[in-house]
């Protein structure tokens, strides 16, 4: 096939269309998490039975997970830089590290959730349980999607199908990953630090 739609190579705003769509998506996601976090705040302190947040939240543990997720953002930056300069050896390493740290974060969340259930806090125990699990669970689902996406890219890199020509794909993955990371900082602050 000869080259198709000429207009897509030149764009009116000079910004890649996929990247622009992704920014729009992130804007939309802000409203999603905004609604979830607002609900958490509106319902804060309105549970009629325990366990209450201060009895159950393990701040040191979650601080470690938060640090882990922050480090994964750093790995993501390194991965993008590597791919952009065509250094696929390090590109693969950093991509995998990002996904691995994401997996560690998810593991932490699994441990945290299990512990809460053992301590008597399930999604239907009280309002804290409802808002906490739905908020952090939605975030966890986003991290899971990110991990699958990163692993897909990593596998394609291993197959040699990912190179500097796909830097935009990696950049968009990075946008998503950083966004999910920033959302976690907000959640960590709102749910764990300000009690």
């Amino acid at each position: 096939m000869t080259h198709a739609v000429a207009a897509t190579h030149h764009t009116s705003m000079g910004l890649d269309s996929r990247k622009m769509a992704f920014w729009a998506f992130i804007g939309s996601e802000c409203l999603l998490f905004g609604s979830l976090i607002s609900t958490y705040l509106v319902y804060k302190g309105r549970s009629v039975v325990g366990p209450y947040p201060h009895e159950i939240l393990n701040i040191p543990f979650t601080s470690v997970s938060t640090f882990d997720l922050l480090m994964s953002s750093l790995m993501m930056v390194l991965a993008l830089a590597a791919v952009q300069r065509g250094d696929m050896k390090w590109g693969k390493i950093w991509l995998f590290s990002t996904a691995l740290l994401g997996l560690v974060f998810l593991g932490g969340q699994v441990i945290e959730f299990t512990e809460f259930v053992h301590k008597g806090l399930t999604i239907s125990t009280n309002l804290f349980g409802c808002t906490f699990f739905v908020l952090t669970g939605t975030h966890g689902a986003h991290v899971t999607v990110g991990v699958l996406w990163l692993l897909t890219l990593w596998v394609r890199a291993l197959q040699g199908k990912l190179g500097p020509a796909n830097a935009m794909t990696v950049e968009i993955t990075g946008l998503y990953w950083h966004f999910v990371d920033v959302v976690w900082i907000v959640i960590f602050t709102v749910v764990y630090l300000i009690q």
């Binding site: 319902y43 549970s47 009629v48 999604i123 239907s124 309002l127 349980g129 409802c130 739905v134």
Partner: peptide
Amino acid sequence: FFGTHFYVREAGA
């Protein structure tokens, strides 16, 4: 489906 109480008065919501 999962027994949460987002709109349930009895649970404080």
